[in-house]
Amino acid sequence: MTALRRLDRRWLYLGVLLITVAAAVWPLRIAPRPTRETRTAFDLAQALQPGAGVFVYVEYGLGSREEMDPMLAAVLGHLADRGAHIVIAARSPEASQVAETVMGGVAARDPAYAKGYGQTWVNLGYRPAPDVALRAATSGIAAAYNEVDYAGRPLAGMPILQALRALNRTYFALAYAFDSGDGFAPMIYYVGTPTGLPVIIGAISMEVPLLQPYLAAGQLAAVIAGARGAAEYEALAGQPRRADVLVGASAMAAIYVLAVMLLGNLVARRP
């Protein structure tokens, strides 16, 4: 018991390492039952008519890709299946690269998007002072993003932005933000609440409690929560199942952390 009381933290770290290696070598697939929030997000996208405008704001960085990429890919894949016209923007330079990579993968599976850049989808990329650009986009997207896309190509000749001129309810049916920090707030403050456009947030698990007040107040239409939400969405939308493995790994880690927590309490209680 004394040894456990003085347990070197490196033994605990070794446990984390073993769990990580085990999850990588023997992937455990868990398909969770969809929650009401994920189902709401799915239903909103499922109700889109072909050609409906959807704004996707990517706010997560490279550190959160493992958790967030499957979610973004599942939602973009579903939107492509519905024939939505997708306008992508980013809140940071790294997020714009992430968005390009994920959408590139989704577009490669669908000819309408693989050859439809500028018609079925566009990546506006990142602009300095991103909150200002987002707010300005509610009255004119092209001007807010300096009339060029992620790669510097002019927006003027792109049919998608001739149809979807401003980020508001007149032109768009849905807006998404995929976030790993507190970047969701500008989407609520500058887009969702002033324009009435339904906003869906896809977030890492840690961030979900922050979103609860906005969800309860009706300022958010739905939340897709972490790897579990991604796995639920993939199942609902019939997208490639990448997140089940993440749910399995997080289940193994959760059981380990819970065991460590209980052990710590047992050790502390013994005389």
């Binding site: 770290y13 952390v257 710590g264």
Partner: peptide, 19 residues
């Protein structure tokens, strides 16, 4: 680099859970 920084949280959480 970013993934490593993010992944380190798991180690700190485990240590905090025990102590």
């Amino acid at each position: 680099v970013f993934s490593t920084m993010y992944g380190l949280i798991a180690f700190f959480i485990t240590s905090a859970a025990y102590r």
